[in-house]
């Protein structure tokens, strides 16, 4: 799943990626793969947040078959002073 500017850049809210070896797939590998396969998203993948099944996920987290993965821009924040 893609949100905000990532969805606009990719012109879709979902992208499908195929892998040969699902067992070894981590969030970090997915980050690199999206960057390689989608040139427009590539400059953004370094700072993207990832969520697996609606939980923030670190790069070393393994992705299993059927997991829902979201690539998200940094949250907007907002200055408090």
């Amino acid at each position: 799943m893609l949100f905000a500017q990532y969805r606009e850049i990719a012109r879709t809210g979902e992208i499908l990626l195929e892998f040969n070896d699902e067992e070894s797939l981590t969030v970090g590998e997915l980050r690199k793969t999206i960057g390689r396969q989608n040139g427009a998203l590539s400059p953004h993948m370094g700072s993207a947040l990832f969520a697996v099944n609606e939980e923030i996920a670190a790069d070393d987290m393994r992705i299993k078959n059927g997991d829902v993965v979201a690539a998200m821009p940094p949250v907007s924040g907002g200055r408090c002073s």
Binding site: A4, Q5, H44, A51, A70, P73, P74, S76, C80
Partner: peptide, 23 residues
């Protein structure tokens, strides 16, 4: 503001996602 996945786009003179402008 700092952790929840909510994003904002500024609509005006220049229309742009705020995280994009900050980046």
């Amino acid at each position: 503001k700092t952790t929840v996945p909510i994003w904002k786009k500024e609509i005006g003179e220049v229309t742009q996602w705020q995280s994009e402008r900050l980046q």
